[in-house]
């Protein structure tokens, strides 16, 4: 049986699918240069985001349903291009795998890279399939399938996804700004916005000056490859900057819990000639002295120390032994002992 939550999820997916379909209907009026089918569709991020948010089924329903709705509004009927609708569904389904491949939530570079790979796959694989169907059915020659269908869609959808999905995830609380993410995000958005701007400019120039579309999309593909390489490089360098901080934080956490055994992990960081190296060395020294102080304290607690005020003791003793009662008692006890000793011998 469906729970209330399932109904809500389905309702949101269908509603977003409707928005997606209507946006498709609107954007369908303006095709990309050299295309009679592909267009600038920032709305592709909607099914992708639904997938990330609610899972692969939700992403598929949103993408496929929205695409069919777009055709319906355009008067072509829901089954106008079923393989393209399926491709749109797959475009939502693939990012829906995020939770299964450790790309949700995004709180470090590794899950972020996994998310970007999913977005590239979501923009490429489904449309390779639908373009393949077009070519397979003999509707378009290979050249047109590549430059009129696949590449324009793949390049633009990837860029839209790269640009819009991460901020949407941040808004939904699925992208957490830990130090690794903060380091890579500045470079990431700078690169994406620059590449997107260049890409859109190239499209405009192509439309006005009628440059060969093959050149445009080849340029686009190269740009995309360069972008991916750039992101990979920035991911690696960000990781190098932030890894020591992450290690330091983890060790600090453990020290906070009373576990000093991981301080040795800071030795490698301590050998760095920069500020992080200094920080690791200072932290290690600090932890070592805290550990020693704690051990000393523990030893102190375990060790009994008896302190006696001997002066007071002597004064108190004199008070007791100086009394007449005590003197008499001592004498009596002495007599008794002597008598007992005599009887014994």
């Amino acid at each position: 049986m469906w729970s209330k939550k399932s109904f809500t999820t389905a309702g949101v997916c269908i509603a977003v699918g409707c928005v997606y379909g209507f946006a498709n209907f609107l954007s369908g009026k303006y095709y990309l240069p050299g295309c009679n089918f592909a267009e600038l569709r920032p709305q592709v991020v909607l099914p992708m985001f639904m997938g990330v948010l609610y899972g692969p089924v939700a992403g598929f329903v949103c993408g496929a349903l929205g695409d069919m709705l777009g055709y319906t509004i355009g008067g072509k009927g829901p089954f106008f291009a079923l393989h393209w609708s399926m491709a749109n569904g797959l475009m939502g389904l693939i990012p829906g795998l995020a939770r299964y491949v450790g790309a949700r939530p995004v709180d470090a570079i590794a899950p972020f890279v996994r998310l970007l790979i999913l977005l590239v796959l979501a923009s490429g694989v489904p449309f390779a399939f639908s373009t393949g169907v077009e070519y397979g059915l003999g509707r378009v020659p290979f050249h047109e399938a590549l430059f009129g269908f696949f590449l324009p869609i793949f390049i633009t959808d990837t860029l839209w996804a790269f640009m819009l999905v991460p901020p949407m995830m941040r808004a939904a609380g699925l992208l957490i700004s830990r130090i690794e993410m903060r380091t890579i995000q500045a470079v990431y958005y700078l690169l994406i916005v620059t590449v997107m701007a260049t890409w859109l400019s190239s499209i405009l120039i192509t439309m006005r000056e009628e440059i060969q579309v093959e050149e445009l999309y080849t340029l686009g593909a190269v740009t995309l490859i360069v972008l991916i390489i750039g992101l990979a490089v920035s991911a690696v360098s960000s990781k190098k900057i932030t890894a020591p901080v992450v290690t330091l934080t983890n060790v600090a956490h453990r020290v906070g819990e009373g576990d000093y055994s991981h301080v040795a992990e800071l030795r490698t960081i301590g050998s760095r000639p920069d500020e992080l190296g200094t920080m690791a060395t200072v932290f290690s020294d600090m932890v070592r002295s805290v550990e020693k102080r704690e051990e000393d304290l523990r030893q102190e607690v375990r060790t009994l120390r008896v302190r006696i005020d001997r002066k007071k003791q002597t004064a108190d003793l004199e008070k007791i032994t100086g009394s007449d009662y005590f003197k008499t008692l001592k004498q009596k006890a002495g007599n008794l002992r002597r008598r007992a000793g005599a009887e014994d011998s």
């Binding site: 008896v306 005020d309 007071k312 003791q313 007791i320 032994t321 002495g334 002992r337």
Partner: peptide, 22 residues
């Protein structure tokens, strides 16, 4: 093993010593 007991125990021992407890 408590600070409250140290001084008094010392006094008791010394008094008993004065009384030649075997």
């Amino acid at each position: 093993p408590d600070y409250q007991d140290y001084q008094g125990t010392g006094l008791t021992v010394e008094v008993a010593r004065e009384l030649d407890v075997p």
